[in-house]
Write a protein that binds this DNA or RNA. Structure first.
Lengths: 205, 205
DNA sequence: CAAATGCTAACTGTTGACAGTTGCCAGTGG
DNA sequence: CCACTGGCAACTGTCAACAGTTAGCATTTG
């Protein structure tokens, strides 16, 4: 309900009304809230309740940095572990996304997230996958604070292709470089959609 | 209580007896269990209860890989952001650890964890810090499955020094290389303490 | 008129009790 | 003697009610 926007960002979660809507008691609901707290989707204030988390610009930048840490490492692992079939599967996935996008001009981020999560999954590290999924959830929540901007689809797909090509050549350096700039672009796009610019005086390298 | 071993690894958490010991009711205890579940310290089985999580060898290797992803990225960020004072503080910290170790031959891992967490904190990314702390908690729980092995203290300290020296020279490549081998050694040491070896046929680079 | 104070309603924090499920053990039949 | 079944005890899942706190509003006072 949080990720779909059914409960708006920043809103308080009223335990009694929500438990009545869901048809459960307050006990299980409070347990669920604690789980969401662990996932970073709500912030709990003592005696005040649980609020759907809001993100400052700095926090969004931090999350993209975290994404970079996780996904760049996944890339490094993939260069050593990915089988030919894995890579061809990724290619097929990209083609399907392209055809789906051509038919239906809507929805740009879900396939993007699918690609990245597939990439991380192929690294074969469950702990890494869990953290990446968590980070994506937080980022999708942060992005939902702005109106959807369906821009940046074609360029993203092109960058995905470049990543897979680098992986096929087992070129770690190229793959990580492309992924890093890809995430930089995604961050800037997200921040632009949210209104303002970044601070970072550090994109020379 | 889990991290200190007061509740042994693999044990079931009896809600009624534990809530009686802690002087609280089962409701808050169940909420706490859900939080621990989010932190990956317990696994909850429906109608069976919460069990202090046990780790397979593969999962421990995955956790060290996750550590590498987070801490190597922290190193990269530090090379750009760390001030001279930050680095001198790290140096002082290492010296204090050495003198403390010379006086008291016990306790090897806590200062190690302190150093790494300090390193990550200096990167100035709260999301990164949170995940690193979580991973360290899981690893300390995994290590607690074996008897403490206070070996490997001097070499670890030496490697810490080498990391700081590389950071002072702003040599990203050297710093990440040292950190990577440091974590490799830590992993092998932990696995050895737990009984058996790793599988990885991939430590040539 | 403005600031401080007391009151009230709404909500969270916690508790104890009830219902449903699981695992174990004795008893029974092959 | 072994496998199976029925019953039982312990425990988890859930609920409704009570206590304590917070925020807002009306009232009072300088």
């Amino acid at each position: 309900m949080i990720l779909t926007g059914e409960i708006p960002v920043g809103a308080r979660i009223n335990e009694v009304t929500l438990s009545a809507e869901l048809g459960v008691s307050r006990g299980p609901l409070r347990e669920a809230v604690q789980r969401l707290r662990g996932e970073g989707l709500v912030t709990v204030i003592s005696h005040r309740g649980a609020f759907v988390r809001t993100f400052e610009v700095d926090e969004i930048i931090d999350l993209y940095e975290l994404r970079a840490a996780l996904e760049l490492h996944a890339i490094r692992l993939l260069c050593r572990r990915a089988s030919a079939k894995d890579l061809s599967d990724l290619d097929e996935m990209l083609l399907q996304t392209e055809t789906a996008m051509r038919a239906d001009g809507d929805r740009v981020y879900p396939p993007d997230m699918d690609f990245h999560m597939r990439l991380v999954s192929l690294a074969g590290n469950q702990a890494l996958v869990a953290r990446a999924l968590e980070t994506h959830h937080q980022l999708s929540l942060a992005r939902s604070m702005s109106a959807r901007s369906p821009v940046r689809a074609q360029t993203a797909i092109a960058e995905h292709h470049a990543i897979v090509e680098s992986l096929k050549r087992q070129d770690v350096h190229a793959a990580t470089d492309v992924m890093e700039s890809h995430l930089d672009h995604a961050r800037e796009s997200a921040l632009a959609a949210l209104g303002l610019k970044a601070r970072d005086p550090e994109l020379s390298a």
